[in-house]
Amino acid sequence: MTTDQFLRVEMLPALHGDCLLVEYGDSARSRRLLIDGGPIATYPHLEARLNALPAGDRRFELVVISHVDCDHVEGIVRLLANQPLPIRVIDLWFNGWRHLVAGGHLLGGQQGEFLSALIVRRFEQGQWNGAFAGQAVVVPEQGPLPEQTLAGGLRLTLLSPTPTTLDTMRDAWQADLGAAIAPGDLDGAWRRLAQRKAYLPGQGLLGTTPELDTLLERQLKVDRAAANGSSIAFLAEFAGKSCLFLADAYHQVIGESIKRLLRQRGQTLLRVDAVKLAHHGSAGNISDELLALIDCPRFLISTNGSRFRHPDAEAMQRIIARSLHQPPTLCFNYDSKTTRPWASAELQKQLNYRAEYNPRPDAPYLIDL
């Protein structure tokens, strides 16, 4: 890594969700990718960050929509509702219904339907899962883990989802459709999308109806385990720096993929500069076995705890006690009721860890790796 090369992660204020902007490059050129868009209230922050980019350089090598939970996807739906798009996207990763079912149509459970309708209208065919030749973004059951090197040299190694977790998501997704949207009816999904005031460009998405509001409320009750298990998660590496972006992925899946990667590379331990914790620091997404595979000084937690009271104390305690790198640093993008207890200087000294908080709560939290 030369002195002017960099890899940076920005955690945008995404309430209880994820919205991450990653930049990499050198003094001559900066490249970037966007991972998720948070819930709908995140969009003004995302819009402001995009508007701050140079007018002639709003290119994103990749946009990743990890899975269809509202706290990851709504801001992206709002972004894609703009016409024309305010950014240039080279590739977009998102597993829609056609990637869950062989020969399936472009449909999905509510938010997935909306996204599919938007993607079809906003992008060329080769831009949707382009790195995977338009097929599912998935870790095969055997063989090497999929790798993709973006322009400028950022290497991504896919860790999740697997065929099994996508199969589980397919069943939950189909059940969630109900009778509201006919399977494969993209035009119907588009009409419903166009009635959603929250996403209407210039008005705060495209008027609102009680029927659609009911659909969006039901989205929150989709099998969370299934949606989380379908998360697109990966290792990003550039110029000697690296970060694990784990979305809401299962720790068992990530652990097995890391073991495969270590075997591929002839290593016994994965050394990374940061881990963006899965599921906002949920106790169900981190394990001793996973931590034993990783040597990492920083753990990034994206949440204000407003909806699901993340991060869980058990998860933070597990990281503090089991991290191979001592002392570990917990990086919070919010100083909130659920994150503030970890700020205690006495507790940090007693348990041997460090806690860092976003110095500007209404701005992105920049972590320079």
Rank of each mutant, 00 (worst) to 15 (best):
T149M: 08
C296A: 15
S336R: 06
V222Q: 14
N129A: 03
A283E: 14
L186Q: 13
L206D: 12
G255M: 11
Q350H: 14
K241R: 15
L15H: 09
R192T: 05
F60T: 00
T339H: 08
A182L: 10
E237N: 07
G75S: 00
I65M: 10
A239H: 02
I181C: 13
Y250M: 04
I294A: 10
G152Q: 00
G204F: 05
L15Y: 11
E356K: 15
L79S: 00
C331R: 07
A172L: 06
Q264I: 01
V73G: 00
E47C: 13
Y199M: 09
Y250T: 02
T338M: 14
G284Y: 11
R8S: 12
T303R: 11
Q252V: 09
C331Q: 04
F132Y: 14
D26M: 00
N51F: 03
L50Q: 03
D18I: 15
G37F: 01
S27L: 11
A343Q: 12
Q111T: 15
V120Y: 07
V139E: 05
A28S: 13
I35K: 10
L34S: 03
V68L: 04
M1C: 09
F123K: 02
W97Q: 14
A131R: 04
G96V: 08
H72V: 13
L347T: 02
P86Q: 00
L20A: 11
D273H: 13
A189T: 05
P201E: 02
L15D: 14
H67I: 00
T339Y: 02
P39C: 04
R340Y: 01
T209A: 09
A182N: 13
Q83C: 08
K221C: 06
H72R: 14
T168D: 08
L177Y: 04
M316G: 01
E256Y: 06
W128V: 15
L7M: 02
L220Y: 12
T168H: 12
A52T: 09
K259L: 15
D69P: 03
Q174C: 08
E74P: 03
A189Q: 04
P311R: 09
L80P: 03
A175E: 15
R8M: 04
R49Q: 11
L53M: 07
D295A: 13
Q110D: 08
I301D: 05
